[in-house]
Simulated assay, not measured.
Amino acid sequence: MSVGTGYGFCVVGECAPGALTAALAQCLGVRAADVEVAGEEYDPQTRNWQAAVSCDCAAADGEVSWVLDVYVSERVPAPPGSRDLARGLAAALGRVVVCEARPYQSGACWVAVPDGRTVRGRLYDPGDVAGRTGFVMDALESPLPQFPDARTDFIYEAVSLGRGWDFSQALRGLSSALRSWCPEGRLELRGSLATDAYDRFSDIDLRWTVPGERFAAAVAGAGECLGRVRPLLTARSDPEFHGAPDRRLLTYFFRDLPLFWRLDLEVRAASPSAGAIPAGCDWPPAVGALANAVGAVKAVRRGRDAETVRGLVERGLARVGAGEPASGRWAEDLVRLADAAERVDPGARALALRVRELVTAELT
């Protein structure tokens, strides 16, 4: 038997039945006549139970105004995911729309705003939270004016897939260290962790925006700050941004985290910077070669094509003067690369050892 799709949403602000009907029709590609919106006082005798799209709408207390229970029948082809539908409704209604960030618990949600953005949040069901009653938005990853009392923080329980790996503990420690070092700064997720398009091979990408007068010190002190919570294995400042007065991209591998989970920290100045900005330094060639090796393992495990993997391996070999082409036996090639990197630079021994362990665990 065919089964439809159910959605749960919360809306902030006025939401007239006619506007909601039009918005659902627009987002789901059906006629308005095929959508039925029923309030709390609907009459079961007159309700159209055969509607292609049904929506129960109830008033709510607290920081959301309405709770919607939407059912889309199997007659609607290819219904969108919950987050995509929330984004469409927010744009069509001109209102903030909240949906559950499945499969997570603890109130994790996506908050869609009319301009097309979605922000993770934590919405508590009606109760008494910190002196606030009804629905309470406890935290948001980026501030929104509709929720002035929400804390700004990452929704750590949502940065995990629950399949044997969990970025949240590492992210919590790193972000706490940076926030303690510069309370005036603002941290944001970048890349795949910001969009839910991540897997266990993803980097931890952060943007750290600090006051201009703190920018030079932030660039100079980030490594020491992070090293207090996670011992550093190696660090890099991307040469591409060494001439920029207000931006640096710093990369760190940690001794006690998977090599896949390196931190790419973009540091930005919120205002013109003051003071001498450290020039930074690139990885030594051997360390750069080992970073290529990690990228190659990641590419193999993600099912990338052979030419992509070959390019990573051969660029790594070239960095350490091992010019022989890759054989295509990736485990052997990468162990050879790690051995060559260690011979060229004994200081890279710890990272080379970790790379060999990674190759054994992932490719053999």
Rank of each mutant, 00 (worst) to 15 (best):
T21R: 15
D203K: 12
A216P: 04
A90H: 05
R87H: 03
L178F: 06
T234E: 03
F9Q: 02
G221P: 12
P148W: 04
Q105S: 08
L351N: 00
A276D: 10
P80F: 06
C182G: 00
V210D: 05
L89A: 07
E240K: 12
F167S: 03
C27T: 08
D153R: 13
R336L: 14
V309A: 08
V320Q: 04
G221M: 10
G81Q: 11
A22W: 00
R301Q: 14
P79K: 01
L263Q: 10
E63L: 06
P114A: 00
R75Y: 03
L189W: 00
D339T: 15
R75S: 13
G223M: 06
H242R: 14
V37F: 04
G328R: 11
S192P: 06
S192L: 06
C109E: 00
L249Y: 08
A32H: 04
D138F: 01
A274Y: 01
V300Y: 05
V97F: 03
Q169I: 05
R95G: 12
D238I: 07
T195L: 11
L249H: 07
V309G: 01
E357L: 11
S271K: 03
A19I: 01
L178E: 10
C55S: 09
V70S: 03
T364N: 08
G8K: 03
R236V: 02
R200A: 10
R83M: 03
E266W: 09
L68P: 01
E157K: 07
R117Q: 14
C182Y: 02
T209C: 11
R179Y: 02
T364E: 15
L259E: 04
L140G: 01
L24D: 01
D43I: 08
E224S: 15
G221E: 15
R319H: 11
V76P: 02
A286W: 05
R255Y: 04
V229S: 13
F260K: 03
L351E: 03
C57Q: 12
F167T: 01
P183L: 09
V30R: 11
A22R: 15
G328P: 05
D196V: 00
L233V: 08
F147W: 15
L144M: 12
S2M: 09
